[in-house]
């Protein structure tokens, strides 16, 4: 693992078994799986904003959870710095969690409604035995102040329902940052927040990244936000990365037909823009029956025979630009 990389993921897979009824189990021998993440390889460099983008069901959130080992992978490896976290014992993993944190999408569901904000934000300190009493309070106040919940003395006493969505997301950031982590998985942190507040949260994330030398794995379906915030982007489709690279490269020179369709579908606040109609047919197939060959072939406008048979590999096409498409060699 090179010095610049902080997280490395190798051929990561997560298959969820499909529950069957008793009768179905008797009648059929085969088990079927939802292949949520199906062989993903990437690495996140220290200090960067790496984005996993894709539509719902593409496996981006599952990948985020796997990277933190919040759920165990079916196969594959995840490295944090030099440690292979997929091999760690639970106690070792808990120690490592101080360095890797997550911010969830839904700020309404990620707080215990009966816990005051101050207690919730200070809870990680207690769990890890880092601070308690007056010291804990001091650190919580400082952190609340840092994420813009001022005056912190007031917010520390409030319950989650007394906060707005934007304030709750700030509190969620305070809670994950209080352990001074190096790496943060941010799972759609702004998608449930109103537009006029979204920018303040995005700016806060960028400020904190600079100040605390954080590295983010950012998960989003919103490519316009991804373009604004990221350094590098990986586009996922049906559990696989179809294109990955430098943000500028992806947006100025998208190579995979799926990335092209995705980018052309983004609304742009410009009435003069002439929009091309979307040529992509059909819809995303079920992750239980992933198409053979290239998983995108049933919808691809440029499909060739090879695409139904051969699964394309993620290959470099330029410096820091990778594409998985049979037509690009």
């Amino acid at each position: 693992m090179s010095k610049t990389e902080i997280v490395k993921v190798e051929n990561l897979k997560k298959y969820f078994p499909v529950e069957k009824s008793f009768l179905e189990k008797l009648l059929t021998r085969t088990r079927s799986f939802v292949r949520a993440v199906d062989g993903v390889t990437f690495s996140v460099r220290k200090g960067e904003f790496f984005t996993l983008a894709g539509e719902s069901g593409c496996g981006k959130t599952t990948t985020g959870k796997l990277v933190l080992k919040l759920i165990p992978p079916t196969s594959g490896k995840v490295f944090f710095k030099d440690q292979e976290i997929t091999k760690l014992r639970p106690e070792e993993l808990r120690l490592l969690r101080r360095k890797m944190q997550i911010i969830f999408q839904d700020p309404y569901a990620s707080f215990n409604p009966r816990m005051r904000i101050g207690d919730a934000v200070g809870h990680p300190l207690e769990i890890h035995g880092l601070a308690s009493g007056a010291e804990k309070r001091k650190r919580v106040l400082a952190m609340l102040e840092r994420v813009g919940l001022t005056p912190p003395e007031q917010f520390i006493e409030l319950y989650p329902h007394q906060l707005s969505g934007g304030q709750r997301q700030r509190a969620a950031m305070a809670r994950s940052l209080i352990l001074e982590p190096e790496f943060i998985v941010a799972d759609e942190p702004v998608s449930m927040i109103d537009v006029s507040l979204r920018t303040t949260i995005i700016d806060l994330m960028l400020d904190l990244k600079r100040e605390l030398q954080l590295t983010y794995l950012f998960i989003t379906h919103d490519l316009a936000v991804a373009k604004y915030i990221s350094d590098r982007i990986a586009v996922m489709y049906l559990g696989k990365i179809v294109e990955m690279g430098d943000k500028e490269e992806i947006f100025s020179n998208p190579m995979h037909p799926y990335t092209q369709a995705l980018l052309s579908a983004i609304p742009v606040p410009n009435p003069q823009r002439k929009r091309e109609p979307i040529k992509l047919g059909g819809e995303v197939p079920s992750a239980i029956k992933i198409p053979t060959g290239c998983c995108f072939h049933p919808r691809c406008p440029f499909k060739k025979e090879i695409c139904t048979e051969e699964e394309p590999e993620l290959i470099p096409t330029a410096a820091d630009h990778f594409v998985a498409c049979n037509l690009i060699k």
Binding site: G166, S196, T199, L263, V268, N270
Partner: peptide, 24 residues
């Protein structure tokens, strides 16, 4: 004006988003 300045536009090469302070 604030809304227009706070939404990302993928057509623009360089963009600095400006937030509207406060909340509704």
């Amino acid at each position: 004006q604030g809304l227009l300045r706070s939404i990302p536009n993928i057509e623009l090469a360089e963009q600095k988003l400006e937030a509207i302070p406060g909340s509704p």
